[in-house]
Design a protein around this nucleic acid. Structure first.
Length: 589
RNA sequence: GCACCCAUAGUUUAACGGAUAAAACACCAGAUUCCGGUUCUGGGGCUGGGGGUUCGAUUCCCUCUGGGUGUACCA
């Protein structure tokens, strides 16, 4: 259904036109002075110039034309030339009734031109545990994906594993030192390799750092690792079998971890999947004359006339002929285009990589890997800082494992919940987990992605203020009222949302009516924080209404039923929003 | 050196070029309560400095200051 702002604008534009002014001046915006009005139009001031006429004269005429319009309770012109509008309560109620009909989407229409959008987020390395550096990518990417999906687009999330390069050789080398008798190391072995991996995830997580440290001290060791890497990449069977064990063990652990965050991926592709595309891609770049040698390396120039800064060429091959991150990312684009024909690829990556991705994007376009019909978008996010304003660290100063961080917050939330009231252990744990996740995600998503933010556990886990738990608390409160009502009686036939009886009820209704426009702009700007800002306002509006209104004690059955319908709608709006943010509400808390 | 990003209340964050810059936490005062810890009501306080464009600037342009980041063989 049409956005309420559009409906209002059209009416006001009509009024401008009726008085002989260009209708473009009739655009209405949300009021920034809620004490004066609900919506406003500033067009008269802009029009004053064109028509050489005092702004308030124009505003007066328009207001006159709008008087008696059933959409507005009042339309008045004010001082310099503002047009202040208040919606008619019955009209507003009608709009909400229409929203209620569509329980799934609350009248928010899917995109007219659905796109296929691939979204690259996650970026974990195999054999290495997730750490807090992976948190933002996962949270933001997942939310952007869900928002896009809600708006009717085909969203394909790809985890883009770091599964290529020296790290694999290091693991194989270390494994060989520890367990030289394994069949994987017998060059002449012909049989089938065992199905079970010769290590567990915790061994794997310990092996990698150990090997990495050794290689820095011991030249021979490093040499061996490089040799193993080379042999792996050139098809040594035993090593490839090991690689798939490493991948399997690692990926199932990663999946478990991402699941805990309510994050999932459609594709579990990795850097290794791009490797087969490299030779042809490089050859074509050479043949087409885009790639040339520079300082021993193969590069593609990506400078443009309008650049204010120096953009170094995009390197395709190192001077030793080896590929690098750029190469892999370009080759990844090759199969993404080939297999999925996306209209857009979004990269949710640390913002420090912006220059690097500028190079990759330009190179991909220039060399024809990507046509003009495909948009490449860099969604850079800022650093997650500790309370001291510096990058988040453990108390000891190391990198915090994501799992530990999440557990810590779960634990804290459990304490909080069991302090408040007695709960069953199991039930309490489950609830704590849900609330904790809302705290982490909302704390992150309520900031603009591009900005650094401070991860303040105490603030994020608070049940008051602009936090995830506060939002959940509001939803739970609504659920509880609805439940009590249902226990007493059934909703009468023909129950419907009625024109607001109070200021706080109308304020709540006005918030709800913004739903579709918020979703649209959150998607257009890839900005989950707009959804956060919205549900916070919505939750506040509801709580004000709740404080002023005796819902369950209301004597008039019709009025009460209207309240219940309004609550249902509020609940749905909140639920859809937290769903796209990537967390859920419990039944109780 | 060069370039990019950021700068808003004590703190963390909002605000299509519009009116008196918003909220949360913290703080202060009053009310409330078996509680100095709960809840409610009220209050103070902000656009880094200087120019410019505009009827009108937190927003756009220039400059200065302060902070962050990046600047080809890492990812």
């Amino acid at each position: 259904m049409e956005k309420i702002l559009e409906l209002i604008s059209r009416e006001v534009e009509e009024a401008f036109a009726a008085n002989g002014y260009d209708r473009k001046y009739g655009r209405v915006t949300l009021s920034n002075r809620p004490d004066l009005c609900e919506y406003q139009c500033n067009g008269a001031m802009a029009a004053a110039k064109e028509y050489k006429c005092a702004p308030f004269v124009i505003a007066d005429k328009v207001a006159e034309s709008l008087s008696g319009n059933e959409m507005f309770a009042s339309a008045e012109s004010v001082k310099p030339g503002f047009l202040n509008l208040k919606l008619d309560a019955e009209y507003l109620a009608g709009y909400l009734r229409q929203m209620s009909v569509d329980e799934e989407r609350l009248g928010c229409e899917k995109s007219q031109a659905p796109k296929t959008i691939m979204i690259d987020y996650g970026g974990p390395n195999v054999a290495k545990p997730l750490h807090v550096g992976h948190l933002r990518s996962a949270i933001i990417g997942e939310s952007v994906k869900r928002i896009g999906r809600f708006m009717g687009h085909t969203m394909i999330g790809d985890v883009h594993l770091g599964d290529w390069g020296l790290q694999m050789g290091l693991i194989i080398t270390e494994l060989k030192e520890r367990k030289p008798d394994l069949v994987y190391f017998q060059e002449d072995y012909e049989g089938a390799y065992p199905e079970d991996a010769p290590f567990t995830i915790s061994e794997l997580e310990e092996i990698y750092p150990t090997a990495s440290a050794k290689s820095k001290e011991d030249e021979n060791y490093k040499e061996a690792a490089m040799q193993a890497t080379y042999e792996l990449q050139h098809g040594r069977k035993g090593y490839q079998a090991l690689l798939s064990h490493i991948l399997n063990v690692s990926v199932s652990d990663l999946k478990r971890n991402y699941e805990n965050l309510n994050v999932s991926f459609e594709l579990w592709k990795g850097e290794s999947d791009a490797q087969p595309f490299i030779p042809d891609m490089v050859q074509k770049m050479k043949d087409d004359g885009f790639a040339h040698m520079s300082e021993g390396a193969l590069v593609v120039d990506v400078k443009e006339e309008t650049d204010t800064k120096e953009i170094p060429p995009c390197m395709i091959l190192k001077s030793d002929g080896a590929s690098l991150y750029n190469t892999t990312d370009l080759a990844t684009i090759v199969w993404r285009i080939r297999d999925y024909h996306p209209d857009e690829i979004i990269y949710v990556v640390d913002k420090r990589q912006e220059l690097y991705f500028t190079q990759v994007f330009r190179c991909a376009r220039k060399t024809g890997l990507v046509g003009p019909e495909t948009e490449l978008k860099f969604l850079g996010f800022g650093t997650m800082n500790g309370k001291d304003g510096k990058p988040f660290k453990t108390r000891e100063g190391g990198v915090m494992r994501l799992e530990y961080l999440v557990n810590e917050i779960n634990e804290e939330m459990y304490k909080k919940i069991s302090d408040n009231h007695t709960v069953e252990e199991e039930e309490g744990r489950k609830t704590a987990k849900m609330v904790a996740l809302s705290a982490i995600k909302y704390g992150d998503l309520s900031n603009q992605a591009a900005k650094d933010y401070i991860f303040d556990v105490e603030r994020f886990t608070s049940f008051e203020g602009n936090t995830g738990p506060y939002i959940l608390y509001t939803i739970v409160r609504i659920k509880s009222i609805l439940k009590k009502y249902q226990e007493q009686k059934a909703l009468p036939q023909g129950a419907k949302i009625l024109a607001a009886h109070s200021g706080s009820e109308k304020a709540l209704m006005l918030e709800i009516s913004k739903f579709n426009s918020v979703m649209e702009s959150a998607f257009a700007d890839t900005a989950p924080h707009k959804v956060c800002a919205y549900i916070y306002d919505l939750a506040n509006a509801f709580n004000h209404f709740y404080h002023e209104t005796k819902i369950l004690a209301e004597q008039d059955e019709g009025v009460q039923a209207g309240y219940i319908c309004l609550l249902e709608l509020t609940k749905r709006a909140l639920e859809i929003c937290i769903e796209v943010l990537g967390f859920d509400a419990p039944e109780k808390m």
